[in-house]
């Protein structure tokens, strides 16, 4: 592996920032140049959020363009569909089966698309769908959904697991480390 473009997409408040920080730290540990571009502020209030993580020998632009992502990690189904055109033709996509309705859907002005996972799966061979919410709940806190999904991602990248664990220990505050490591392991062990 000489470079990797990963996008983490979801809904503001789902914890995509923490996931991208751990991922960025993993890249640095592997001696890559790395850039992580985040969204803060207004979009973090329940809007559509995207984080770009790029690692290579040398990274210039922090943004990933359409058709350039090797892996798309979607914390929510609709967001998977929104960002899927950023994925390479032979890219991998991990979809959390969680559904969060945007306001236009809640107000009945627009429809939440049906069978998103199936539709994406038809186009992309490497589609993995996970129901991370119950896994996180089982680990002790539904907020750990982000790290469960990171575990799934870790497995798919093939990057040595110990690097991930080290990175979690460095990035996550001591108090919640145990929970997060448990969540990561649970995600890593999901059958895909």
């Amino acid at each position: 592996m000489d470079k990797l473009n990963i996008m983490i997409v979801g809904v503001g408040g789902q914890g995509t920032l923490l996931a991208s920080r751990i991922l960025g730290n993993v890249a640095m540990k592997m001696s890559f140049d790395v850039k992580v571009s985040e969204v803060h502020g207004m979009a973090q209030r329940g809007g559509s959020v995207v984080t770009y993580v790029k690692f290579a020998k040398k990274v210039y632009s922090p943004l990933i363009e359409k058709g350039e992502a090797d892996i798309l990690l979607a914390f929510e189904k609709l967001e998977a569909l929104r960002w899927v055109e950023f994925l390479k033709e032979d890219g991998s996509i991990i979809i959390n089966k969680q559904r969060i309705d945007p306001v236009p859907v809640i107000l009945g002005k627009e429809k939440y698309p049906e069978e998103i996972v199936e539709k994406i799966n038809k186009v992309f061979d490497k589609t993995v769908a996970v129901d991370a919410l119950p896994i996180a709940r089982e680990c002790g806190n539904i907020k750990a959904v982000n790290v469960v999904l990171l575990g799934v991602l870790a497995r798919i990248t093939g990057i040595d697991k110990s690097i991930w664990l080290e990175s979690i220990k460095e990035v996550v505050p001591q108090k919640i480390q145990e929970l997060n490591i448990k969540a990561f392991e649970a995600g890593f062990n999901v059958e895909v």
Partner: peptide
């Protein structure tokens, strides 16, 4: 732009809330 695969489906916007 490079080749990218589109799925023909209307995606509702998600404004902040």
């Amino acid at each position: 732009a490079g080749a990218s695969v589109k799925i023909d489906e209307a995606v509702p916007v998600r404004p902040p809330v």
